[in-house]
Design a protein around this nucleic acid. Structure first.
Lengths: 341, 341
DNA sequence: CTGTTAGCGCCTTCAC
DNA sequence: GTGAAGGCGCTAACAG
């Protein structure tokens, strides 16, 4: 770790190798034909000097930098983590580099502002393309391609990946209804999110389909957090006529709901059935293992990266919207209704 | 999202504002005295055009870029996630930008290679400094400051942050011993990691201190993963004379151990006490809530960032090593030993 | 095959 | 106060 001397540049390499900078540049980019002897020599000097070309300089000259950017709202959020994993997998397979940014829920700037900030920070500058997870903003001024995952609002002009939230919610509800449940509570996600609304709509539609009257008291507005899930479930379970099952709009809320039930002396699934949405890893480990709707989040990240790199490499994509399938995963948090209720 | 036209440059701003590029540059960097009227006008044009200065160009000219880099081995690992959160918090408070890289456990290049790759990718180029989590490499050729968190090996010349692993392990063991346990199994972490070895040493020393003979059969070599924790625990619990308590070198292993116990028909804590290490968020939510040693991981990220930014801003740091305290957090996964065993 | 010549977008002297 | 040059490290044309 040399502190002072600074970076070794392409110049240094050229001089100590006794060639011109362009020759060095050529071997760096495996260009044309360089005399094997020269190539060898330059390569050796590069090795010796521990030279790495400056990303900054490189991206300034050539369009392609070989890095793509990922903007997530929160590094601690399981959804974001899974997307990161998927993107990371694709990135390494396809030999790109990945830069991750957090648009965070910070006070200083709004999420939308930070997103814009990062997009332009990356744009034309450092990254060949950008993936944005649950973007708050709907438009971005950028020359590089953008793919959005699970956007909060319709995002015109953006490539978008989103799960079949409505269908997934229906599947969960049909399962619960098939188990004999009639009073089913719903803990929704943030109402400003498309995906949350689609799930709510699925809940409603499934009820209608089964000819079960809808009871507004059974719908609680959550925010996808564990803590709010707990609070919502408490309210639901304190109703004069409490639900026998709860469908939570994501796994975190479902965990909160189960914890609330437990605190109130209810056993899951014996006294209350709970279904989540997402199928994050913890769902399988949870006690009881959580029945939930898988939306293949990690795969979303992977697909987003594939789409983005396709765009980067100039392949024109036809459809702007990629629908990710959902699938009910039955585990141990639900039980058929037996006697009363 | 304009696709074609490319980026708006400082030139464009200068032209539409009717000034020279240097003037624009001045207002961008709040330099000297710019006539208020000019300042205002330029500012407005910047706003209108949605201009953001190119990170690439900027970092090429000026030393300070205002971004720091974070290199983590795996975005899915709870330890890395907590560090990210801490770094992120410090970053936003101190008004820097953050770039995250994954050195990943990929086949293509070794972790050490990837670390070096990223360090030089960031160095002198994009970032003012770099934080590396559990680095495999021990030296980095870089002009920018480097801080390492929980390095695998001694990392000379690097600023290092590491928890008091030995003391933490002793605390956990004293607690278990105080509860009356005498046969205590240990599931270690990867033996190539400093922190893992320190914890093992703590286990050993606590035993000696309490005059409990050490039994090699009670020590299993794990790798910090849940799955391995499960396997190790299975072996431990299948011993002719199984342990009454298990101390796992991290929370993930502890979860695995509890799951193994459950599969074998043992109840935790009634039939087996388990202590973990890390205090990741899941530990509090787990059923039973996990007794563990907090090593304030998030805080490590925060402190690392503070140290790094101190270095970046030229404040000379005195000590190269920051020791993070550890603290036993008692929850529900242990019980005093009663009758037999 | 290799060196020379232009810039990429920006900041930093230096004049005015 | 402001504009005009020079150059950061690198790549992409051209020459040779």
């Amino acid at each position: 770790m040399r502190r002072k001397k600074g970076t070794v540049t392409i110049q240094d390499v050229a001089e100590t190798a006794g060639v011109s900078v362009s020759t060095v540049s050529r071997v760096l980019n495996n260009k044309d034909d360089v005399a094997p002897a020269t190539y060898e020599k330059v390569q050796r000097v590069i090795e010796e000097l521990g030279y790495t070309s400056s990303l900054a300089a490189r991206s300034m000259r050539s369009r392609r930098t070989g890095v793509i950017g990922l903007i997530v709202p929160d590094v601690g959020d399981p959804f974001s983590i899974l997307v990161m994993k998927g993107v990371n997998r694709a990135i390494t397979e396809l030999d790109y580099d990945l830069i991750i940014y957090t648009s965070g829920s910070i006070k200083k700037r709004s999420a939308a502002e930070r997103e814009r900030h990062f997009v332009s920070l990356l744009n034309g500058s450092i990254a060949d393309g950008v993936i944005i997870v649950t973007p708050a903003a709907t438009t971005f001024s950028t020359a590089a391609p953008v793919v959005t995952i699970d956007p909060n609002n319709e995002c015109p002009e953006c490539l978008t990946i989103i799960a079949t939230n409505h269908a997934g919610a229906i599947a969960a509800m049909e399962y619960l209804i098939g188990l004999g449940h009639r009073r089913i509570g719903f803990i929704s996600g943030r109402p400003d999110l498309q995906s949350a609304n689609h799930r709510l709509q699925g809940y409603l539609d499934a009820l209608r389909q089964a000819n079960i009257p809808q009871d507004p008291a059974l719908i609680e507005i959550g925010d996808f957090s564990r803590e709010t899930g707990r609070i919502c479930a408490r309210r639901l379970l304190s109703l004069p006529e409490p639900p026998t099952a709860i469908f939570a709009a994501n796994d975190q809320s479902a965990f909160g709901a189960i914890e609330a039930a437990r605190e109130m002396g209810l056993r899951v699934p014996d006294d209350l059935s709970v279904v989540g949405f997402d199928n994050i890893p913890e769902a399988a480990y949870y006690n009881p293992a959580l029945t939930t709707v898988d939306q293949f989040i990690e795969q979303m990240g992977y697909v987003a990266t594939e789409m983005l790199l396709g765009l980067v490499q100039g392949e024109p994509l036809e459809n702007d919207l990629h629908l990710m399938p959902t699938q009910l995963v039955v585990r141990d948090s639900c039980r058929a209704i037996t006697g009363n209720a």
